[in-house]
Design a binder for these strands. Structure first.
Lengths: 235, 235
DNA sequence: CGGGGAGTTGATCCACATCAAGGTCTGTGG
DNA sequence: CCACAGACCTTGATGTGGATCAACTCCCCG
């Protein structure tokens, strides 16, 4: 259940500044946005919306990380994507006029803005630069989803795990110690790679034994990206 | 390699009429389209474009069926989608300004129109109804791709095969004999389901033995859709 | 300091891939 | 019209990646 608290506008402004997509709004539209949007803060574990919900607008992340996942057999989560600072999400359901095809849950305390569908549609309708950016975004996500499909269909768990470690590195970068800037449970990694938790654990230990990574609880440090790349590049 | 022949405009007009997306063009734009588009006919096996190609426009199918696939390990095809009469494709690469993320090959003799990217962009820029439709389309495909991911990640081959048979039924319908209106090799079905050819054969025979389907070479007739639905609906 | 979620490890099992061999259909050219 | 090549299909035998089950430990937090 989502615990929301209203926040001062200051953080909100912050959020919008993070996202380059709103640069394509006119000054007037931008002002309108700061007026209509509402900003909330979320804790790890909070649900932004559930699969099957009707989504009444789009979301923009000012701070934090969320995962987008579908719930499958026995409630097993399959993560299809992450969003982080500056990313927008929810537009897929809004634009396709369908209910949400994924659930969105916070995995790192976040501050997220909500913009009602009406305004969003207005901008898309009247601002072709903005609408072009949105289109580009959805097409990019579609390309990534297609890649995901063939990865899961044809690569081994070992290959996929190597690939997703690199993807996390690319997406979230590292802190000053070289650790990945995202903290996932083994179960979440399993839900991302599409495998069982135990398999993730075994393969991570294997990678560690081969000096490809370092492990310190949920901290993962990638030591040998080149070799990981070699493992996942089987095509 | 793609064998193309120019066709009379008559068939071309035909093609555009099939697609409801062009109804959203203004009369002027529509006229422009009939002027700039070029129509070609393709035989089964012809390639429209390869994964990694730069795509210079969008395609619209007047007749026939194509498959969109990625090539993986050992050249094994993973089909991610089909397009048929009235569908447009190629816009993903165009809009995301990336190279094609899939190859497109004809699986039923087809007549396909090509519309250059320049005109397409013009319409999107100046016609918000049209651009909205395109957006809706790409978001719908994104939702389907997400579903595909969790299916492949969590369902058994048996469940997926049942699901894809129903999906083919839904997409292509049946002829007067009740056979699916699409003819795929066992290998293509395997590439769709994400499994080995032999597994497809064994499971199809199983379904046949259970009187769920009838098989006559590449003709597949679905006898008991309800039971197939029960097999694939494990979530 | 104890309860619970997360992580780990080992043992077991099976769905499915892979390999191998043969059968059937179709189109081509002699 | 036949024969032959090649693509496709089928069936059986075998191997294995990784899921599942079970037991235990570790670590955090109230």
């Amino acid at each position: 259940m989502s615990v929301k608290k209203n926040e001062s506008t200051t953080i909100c402004e912050h959020c919008v500044h993070q996202s380059d997509i709103f640069r394509y709004l006119t000054t007037e539209e931008y002002e309108q946005m700061t007026y209509v949007k509402s900003c909330n803060s979320y804790k790890r574990g909070d649900i932004v919306y559930h699969e099957g919900n009707r989504v009444g607008g789009i979301y923009c992340i000012g701070k934090g990380i969320v995962k987008h996942y579908k719930t499958g057999i026995d409630g097993k989560e399959q993560i299809v994507r992450f969003s982080k600072k500056g990313d927008i999400f929810g537009f897929r359901s809004v634009l396709s006029e369908e209910v949400a095809c994924t659930s969105t849950k916070v995995i790192e305390d976040a501050s997220i803005c909500f913009i009602p569908v009406g305004n969003f549609f207005d901008w898309i309708k009247h601002n072709s630069d903005f609408s072009m950016r949105i289109m580009k975004l959805s097409c990019k996500e579609l390309g990534e989803a297609n890649q995901y499909i063939i990865d899961i269909a044809q690569k081994s768990v070992r290959e996929r795990l190597a690939e997703f470690l690199l993807l996390l590195l690319d997406n979230f970068g590292t802190d000053s110690d070289g650790n990945l800037n995202i903290s996932l449970t083994r179960e979440e990694i399993a839900g991302l790679v599409g495998t069982a938790t135990e398999s993730v654990i075994r393969l991570l230990s294997e990678f560690k034994a081969d000096n490809l990574i370092e492990l310190e609880r949920r901290q993962i440090k990638i030591l040998n990206a080149k070799q990981l790349k070699r493992i996942c590049d089987v095509f």
